[in-house]
Structure formats: C-alpha cells, structure tokens
Design a protein around this nucleic acid. Structure first.
Lengths: 103, 103
DNA sequence: CCGGAGTTTAGCAATTTAGCTAATAAGCGA
DNA sequence: TCGCTTATTAGCTAAATTGCTAAACTCCGG
C-alpha cells in the first residue's frame, strides 16, 4: 500500500481528478452527473472516483440507484497543508493565504 | 507536455522527491549529497531531481564539478496553495495555517 | 419478474514511471 | 594529458497508469 500522503498527491496528479474535486466544492454530485461533465466514458470517471476515494478525498453515499460523491475538504487541507508547512517557510504559507483572502 | 500544475503534483507524488524537497529546506545541496541520503543509486536520484526541476520546484547551480540544487518555495506555495484555495473553503485553509503557526 | 437506468468491474492495449547497470560528459589536480 | 570525482544520459525491464469496450450488478417501476 502506498502511504497516505502519497495516495493524496498521486490522486491530485491528474487534471480530471482535480477538476472533479473542484466540481464537488459546491456540493455532492452523482457519479453520472460528474461523468457528464467530461469527455471520458463513465467507467473511466468511475476509476478516477475510486482513486479519489482511496485517497480519502471524497466519500460516497448511496441513494437508490445513484451514488453521490462528496468532497472531504479536511483531508485535502490537512495532508497538503501539512506538507506545504513542512517545506516552505512559514511566512510564505501565510502570505499566500492572506493574498487569497484579502483580494 | 503535461500542464504546469500537473507536473508539480506528479513530482510530489513520490516519497523520495518529497523528502528531497524537505532536505533542501535548510539550504542548497549538491546532487551527490542528496543521493547519499537515500538507498537508491545516483542515476535514480538524478532522475528525481530532473522531475523536480521540470516542475520548477528546484533550481540548479553549477560550481566546478558539482551541481547544487536549491528549493524554489514560491513555486510550491503558489501552485499548491492556489489549488487548495480553489477547492477548500477559505476558512479551512486559514484554520489549518493558524493551527500550524500557533502551536 | 422484466427492462432500463445508473455504476462499477473485468479484460485488454498503449503509455509512462521507476529502478538498475553501463556508458558518457565535464571539471580539476598532479 | 591522465586519472579521479561528480553527475547525467542511454538502454533495458518490470510494474503501474490510463483509456476503451463489454460484461456484470443493483435498484426500482410497471
């Protein structure tokens, strides 16, 4: 098994998977709704969703026929944020955050 | 060519490359000094360094025989931080940062 | 119970990645 | 220039990733 943080960054290394996360920011979506936003086939998107689930970046909820996926933002913020803080000078992480917040 | 942000996350998806970045936090290191810290061979580490350089996460400086590598923390903070802010709620990014700084 | 909608799993081909060893390049001191 | 040190590139193999199509599975309405 790849270690936890590795699975997170590996999941983020694909444009489609990053876009899925962004799409989920505004709320849960069914697998089919997600797939409809991309040119890839449903099975391909299903695999991307599995990668995100394995990384702990999304959770799934079954509702009858459909499976709704939701973002797990803490997972992203904690793992990525921790690494960022472990490598970048503290004030740089701070400055980046402030720039975003105050604009 | 993979787009910029993809190359960054792909570079971060390998434990050795993440460790290299952490090692460079305290200052520049020659390729050989870096390689000595890992069990892998020098050519393997050289390839990891090339991946980091392609992603813009490190720069190299030649000094005679040796090639010194340095961290480019802005690159990491900006690309990763931007994505984090694009996906996570703002207050979550802030809270994570504050937790790190105040502990 | 049948059929269709929604998803995932299986199986396959093409590409990329990661590691090694061997070979090459480049700098420097004697 | 020779030889040693430092580092990268070449060439190979094994394994992982990504995409597709086809098949399977689940749920529900009629």
């Amino acid at each position: 098994m790849a270690d936890e943080i590795t699975s997170v960054f590996a999941a983020l290394a694909h444009p489609t998977r990053r876009q899925i996360l962004q799409d989920l920011k505004s709320g849960e979506l069914a697998a089919g709704e997600i797939a409809a936003r991309f040119a890839s086939t449903a099975p391909t998107i299903s695999r991307h969703l599995a990668a995100l689930r394995t990384a702990g970046l999304v959770t799934e909820r079954r509702d009858g026929n459909r499976i709704f996926y939701s973002l797990v933002p803490e997972r992203l913020a904690l793992s990525v944020g921790d690494f960022l803080s472990a490598v970048c000078p503290e004030q740089m992480v701070l400055r980046e955050t402030r720039k975003r917040v105050t604009r």
